[in-house]
Write a protein that binds this DNA or RNA. Structure first.
Length: 456
RNA sequence: GCCGCUAUCGUCUAGGGGACUAGGACGCCGGAUUCUCAGUCCGGAAACCCGGGUUCGAAUCCCGGUAGCGGUGCCA
């Protein structure tokens, strides 16, 4: 088999725009990108839109949005495969002239009937000049076509079982297996990294490439990703698309880290990696062969780790843009101060707002919280707390902690009997950042107002 | 039906003939941190699909079975 020269890596991500980009596609894009960035190679984006029915501008835009959000930048493209159809037609004409492809009016039923008669061998048609006949590639009757796969090793397909497959429709428009082969060859792609579902198509593409006298790229077929139930990924499996991951409050760098590890592992079990480290360490040869299940719980944990390590300003920016998308807009400085006390408590951006909302809005109304922590016996203590609060100066977390701790000790109370009623009074709920931080951030005036309201 | 791929804790994985009483991570369970939640720290339960073979020795190699998955379109 002839192989493309491996001077400079040229890889491509070639999605068909049938809707949102799923995490399987996102991982494929990531692996291609990682290969290009790790080798100083080129990452090409090509949209496989030869099926005009399914390819809409909205779908293309969704994929591009997803790649941008993931920060996977491409060096060339996006190319439209459809727009390259004249190149494909030229190739088809050449193949017909060379006698390796021929027109055949047989329909799908005809092919089935033929195969039934011939013991399920690969279909072999009869050339015809009939108007509207599709074009098929002639497949040899014996021998086998071997795909040298970087991940799986050599995989051989008997030619006898392969149909003379259609490379152009009756109206002359090119089909996928022809277009892919032509584009990969003409774009000088050195490594085709794509989902496992294309493995069975690969011998067809190799056959086209050879018939065209073109170099055959290296192939790497990635195991497919499945949902929590072990079935193929779909909308019903929670956050299965990149957009959903973004809306759920995950950070792109965390998603990249998580996705990289779905199917690939390091020799030393390193789990948390910056994108730079990913680029440096990733190798397609180490990708596993078995399919993996997308587990959002591990992503959540990983995302939390990334969030906690973010500098406060970047953290605030991330929270701000997430809130904006959700329709909440608050002042930057106030948000930054709020984030400072909540940063180490959230695992996703979506979890931040519930923790800090009391700083921007009146307390929420949580009946169960009131019933449990604002009973008559609590109000007595709360009155005492109010007095301490009114006198505490400066009104900062450290001083508040000192005074409130002293108050708890003097009265011989359990901390919980004091802090939970106070928390419910100022936030309305039983969950918030640290109580001293929360009170300090709220400020004396608003805190006293809320305590008074609770005392009423 | 035919062609092809895959098989280590619930999940992601390390390991590729002896270092394996099978390692790590998420999750789970228990404990600690005595303001909630989260986090953090410590401890624990938890796996080589089954059957043959090769070998002194197999999670690792071979064969068979089973299961899952992909393809089998004038879809991509």
């Amino acid at each position: 088999m002839s192989t493309a020269s491996n001077d400079t890596v040229r890889v491509r991500f070639a999605p068909s725009p049938t809707g949102a980009l799923h995490i399987g596609g996102a991982r494929t894009a990531l692996y291609n990108w990682l290969m290009a960035r790790g080798s100083g190679g080129t990452f090409v984006l090509r949209i496989e839109d030869t099926d005009r029915e399914r390819s809409t501008p909205e779908n293309v835009e969704q994929i591009i949005d997803a790649l941008r959000w993931l920060e996977l930048d491409w060096d060339e493209g996006p190319y439209s495969q459809f727009e390259r159809r004249e190149r494909h037609k030229e190739a088809i004409d050449r193949l017909i002239e060379a006698g390796v492809a021929y027109r055949d009016p047989a329909t799908a039923e005809d092919v089935l009937a033929w195969k039934a008669e011939h013991g399920n061998r690969g279909y072999r048609g009869t050339p015809s000049d009939e108007e509207g006949a599709a074009v098929r590639l002639r497949v040899p009757d014996d021998g086998e076509t071997v795909v040298e796969d970087v991940i799986r090793g050599p995989v051989s397909f008997p030619n006898a079982a392969q149909d003379d497959f259609v490379i152009a429709r009756g109206d002359g428009t090119p089909l996928y297996n022809l277009a892919v082969a032509v584009d990969d060859a003409e774009m000088g792609i050195t490594d085709v990294v794509r989902g496992d579902d294309h493995l069975s198509n690969t011998p067809k593409q190799v056959l086209v490439l050879r018939a065209l006298g073109a170099d055959v790229p290296r192939y790497a077929h990635l195991p497919l990703l499945h949902g929590p139930d072990g079935k193929k990924l779909s909308k019903r499996h929670g956050a299965a698309s990149v957009q959903e991951l973004r809306d759920a409050g995950y950070l792109p760098e965390a998603v990249r880290n998580y996705l990289a590890l779905l199917g690939w592992g390091t020799e030393d079990d390193t789990t948390l990696m910056s994108t730079e480290e990913l680029i440096e360490r990733f190798s397609i040869e180490r990708v596993g062969r078995s399919s993996a299940i997308f587990d959002e719980r591990k992503l959540r944990w990983m995302n939390g780790r990334f969030m906690r390590e973010l500098p406060l300003d970047e953290y605030t920016d991330a929270v701000a843009s997430h809130l904006k998308a959700a329709g909440v807009e608050v002042g930057r400085d106030e948000l930054r101060a709020a984030c400072a006390i909540a940063q180490d408590k959230a695992q996703t951006l979506a979890e931040v707002w519930p923790l800090i909302r009391f700083l921007f809005e009146p307390p929420v109304d949580d009946e169960k919280a009131r019933a449990k922590f604002l009973k008559p016996e609590h109000l007595e203590n709360l009155r005492g707390v109010r007095a301490v609060l009114a006198e505490t100066d400066p009104f900062d977390a450290a001083t508040l902690e000192e005074r409130l701790t002293a108050f708890v000790e003097e009265r011989g109370l359990k901390p919980k009997e004091v802090y939970q009623p106070l928390r419910v009074a100022i936030t309305g709920t039983t969950v918030s950042p640290g109580i001293f931080d929360s009170v300090a951030a709220l400020g004396r005036e608003r805190t006293l107002e809320r305590v008074d309201a609770a005392l009423d």
